[in-house]
Nucleic acid binder design. Sequence first.
DNA 1: TCCATTTTGGAGAATCATTCTCCAAACCTC
DNA 2: GAGGTTTGGAGAATGATTCTCCAAAATGGA
Lengths: 154, 154
Amino acid sequence: MKKQSEEVEKFAAYCRTHGLSVTQQRLAIFEALASSREHPSAEQLHRAVQRRIPALSLATVYKNLEALKAIGAVADVNPLHEQGRFEAALPGTGAGKPHHHLVCVSCKKVRDLHDSELDRLQVHDAQGFDVRAVRVQAEGLCPECRARKARSRA
Amino acid sequence: MKKQSEEVEKFAAYCRTHGLSVTQQRLAIFEALASSREHPSAEQLHRAVQRRIPALSLATVYKNLEALKAIGAVADVNPLHEQGRFEAALPGTGAGKPHHHLVCVSCKKVRDLHDSELDRLQVHDAQGFDVRAVRVQAEGLCPECRARKARSRA
DNA sequence: TCCATTTTGGAGAATCATTCTCCAAACCTC
DNA sequence: GAGGTTTGGAGAATGATTCTCCAAAATGGA
């Protein structure tokens, strides 16, 4: 368990450096997240941590995830999770051909990205998955948000 | 507008082939989606179509998107939108290094995918975006879901 | 260590996206 | 055009996420 406690120490130090206190709950949530090979949802984390801290509330999980995201100790796997996004996919028309996306992490705008090089991607380590589609998502700031940020810095 | 009405005809035919009637609302929703360079949310589509059909309800938008998804005329840009998913990202530890994901479209499980070839990807047509990260998401069926489907076919 | 200040945690309410219910209106087949 | 089926709409229900507010815990000095 040496390895584990080292990680814990690093986490604790990181929190303190960034002005967050190290509570049992926060630590337990981070440990649950770090030791999972999945990418759990807040709900799943809540269930996992409740085995150790039965009184833990779901709001605490969200609040801590938010705080840890703010200092960069936790990441969101997916910047578009708050709303479904759709596209036309009528077979036999231009739509529906697999393509890739540019996502603005600030305003959540999505633009198509056409790139034949990306279309040729192969997944080598599929871990038993039957891969049907490979999607590339390039995340960054769109021109509008870049301009807005530049203006606010001026 | 010849092009436009051809698309509309194709859509109408496709709906009928798949047993869906072609209503004003359904058509308007599809047109709004097909003519958008964005990837709108249900809410955005609702606002757009209301300019033509003021009485349109949001539930109708969702119901139609669902129906059109079922016949393959509309696609979900993102299979993980219903819940946030998190990962540990403590700088200086194994976590936090950018990596890619295998996503099961059936059970929504997410697995890490490590592939140095994917790490080297470049985006050529960034359309003015300041790209910070390129994420590859391979979508398909995980081994468990494959087994489950194979069993239910037997 | 002990106190004062700040931050955190929890219960439950509030909010937002999405789905469901139920019935009248529209559609399709003949 | 009648009859059976499907669709559309208003608003309620649901589920995920966030907020509120106060007591408890952590932190930083004397």
